[in-house]
Design a protein around this nucleic acid. Structure first.
Length: 437
RNA sequence: CGGAGCGUAGCGCAGCCUGGUAGCGCACUACACUGGGGGUGUAGGGGUCGUGGGUUCAAAUCCCGCCGCUCCGACCA
């Protein structure tokens, strides 16, 4: 992508509404613009990151055996009356009336809707288990939206739902999602700790929150220090096998969100206890037959009897993750993207646009990198070097490649790693290899 | 929903107290110079001062209502 033609309105100064790092940086880096309180437009750069996160979430959901679908944002109030949540949900739910005076709502979540789809489509235990998910915008009319996309009113969420015949099956589904979440967050470059959590208004008795530790987190959590040191990387998962042992290794040690904290266990941990603030990035629930009973989602069992299905739901805050990743990974100069979600892998800076040799070398390298499958943002603007560098640091691409007349005399480019700050002068022809190493 | 604050150019702000020509920095446009980490000079463009009403000869400024946004708290898949 040529910087000159890319809609990337960066800001030198921070709009006054932004209080925390991720919000500030997202506005300054031209990723989002606020439309109204807690509602944001995603500009091209931010949208690329959002899509990258979505992609990884999808891949891991698919790997775990969930199937993607798409449910609408606007739902009928009648469904919610069936489950009893139309009255229970309170003013957080945005209620709408259509031209025929029908009560509608902008979905804050989708249990009712998926249950309705399931109950009209599945009649036999032979069709179980099922896991379905979608990635869709939700709306919750928060009293006080804040922290940019981390606590917006409108937000993008992946929500999955599992349907099983009995508790053991539901537990297997729960474990699949548990493991899928570990893998998803690890691929996103995050250390997300699964914590005992309250089920909240969704109800149910098995629930984990996946949180990342960050000073700007909204809640206080506590966990065993082993979680901090645990090696999170590269676990090969066989979803057809027994996942319980793996789940056990992550749930046997103490880790609890604030409403689930246990003073006695914490006391016993002594020096092994870590308390910190945390950002919730995922939440999984087993809630049994809460909705299936209320909404009559039953299947015929082996003996022809009617059995209410066992359900679970599993959410990942996709848009919140963009902010959360930045909270976890930035410095004074700007964002530092983990490679997996970076909007581009590399930035290419032409230090002297208009200089024939410089332009030619940049064009050639730009083509070579793209041919090698490396996404590049090529800053071909006639700006001063300082502005280009500052901009690139702000945007936070993993690599910066700098070409100027001085280095070009010796056929070299400067390659800088945004994360480590390490700079190396290497021959132009070695640049593609260097970035893929 | 309790408490506090803010709204003046795209962004950051001053002006308001004590009413009288709407300002500064950045950004933007043109030209020249410059060019390896947020340039220099010259010349420009851009404002119903959130909105409605009131007071006044005169309101960005004083008074009242409304709207929007932010912060603290409570709330929170």
């Amino acid at each position: 992508m040529l910087r000159s033609g890319f809609f990337l309105p960066t800001l030198k100064e921070t709009p006054s509404e932004a209080q925390i790092a991720s919000h500030r940086l997202m506005l300054r880096a031209g990723m989002v613009r606020q439309a109204s309180a807690g509602i944001y437009s995603w500009l091209p750069l931010g949208f690329r990151v959002l899509k990258n996160i979505e992609r990884i979430v999808r891949e891991e959901q698919d790997a775990a055996g969930a199937q993607e679908m798409l449910m609408p944002t606007i739902q009928s109030a009648d469904l919610w009356r069936e489950s009893g949540r139309y009255d229970a949900y309170g003013p957080e739910m945005l209620r709408i009336r259509d031209r025929h005076e029908r009560d509608m709502l902008y979905g804050p979540t989708n249990e009712e809707q998926i249950t309705e789809i399931f109950r009209t489509s599945v009649r036999s235990y032979r069709d179980l288990p099922r896991m379905l998910y979608h990635v869709q915008w939700k709306f919750r009319d928060e009293v006080r939206p804040r922290f940019g996309v981390m606590r917006g009113r409108e937000f993008l969420m992946k929500d999955a739902y599992s349907f099983d015949l009995d508790y053991d099956g539901a537990k297997r589904s729960y474990n699949k999602m548990f493991v899928a979440y570990l893998r998803t967050f690890e691929r996103l470059g995050l250390k997300a700790i699964p914590m005992q959590a309250d089920a909240g208004p969704i109800g149910g008795d098995m629930s984990h929150e996946f949180v990342i530790l960050a000073e700007t987190g909204e809640s206080e959590v506590a966990c065993h220090r082993d979680f901090i040191e645990m090696d999170w990387r590269g676990r090969d998962i066989d979803y057809t096998g027994d996942l319980q042992p793996l789940v056990d290794t992550f749930t046997s040690k103490y880790a609890a969100t604030d409403e689930r904290r246990d003073p006695e266990r914490e006391k016993a941990l002594g020096g092994d206890l870590v308390t910190a603030r945390a950002i919730e990035v995922g939440h999984i629930f087993y809630f049994g037959t809460k909705y299936s009973k209320a909404m009559n989602a039953v299947v015929a069992g082996p003996n022809g009897e009617e059995i209410a299905v066992e359900m679970g739901s599993y959410g990942i805050g996709v848009s919140r993750l963009v902010g959360a990743i930045i909270e976890a990974s930035h410095d004074d100069a700007g964002i530092i993207w983990p490679e997996a979600v970076a909007p581009f892998k590399a930035g290419l800076i032409n230090l002297k646009v208009g200089d024939g040799d410089c332009d030619k070398a940049c064009d050639a390298l730009y083509a070579a990198l793209r041919a090698g499958g490396i996404s590049v943002l090529y800053d071909d603007r006639e700006e001063r070097a300082g502005i280009k560098f500052a901009d690139m640091d702000l945007i936070g691409l993993p690599w910066q490649v700098v070409i100027g007349p001085r280095g070009l005399k010796n056929g070299i480019a400067e390659v800088k790693n945004r994360k480590t700050g390490e700079r190396a002068e290497i021959p132009l022809e070695n640049v593609p290899a260097r970035l893929t190493a």
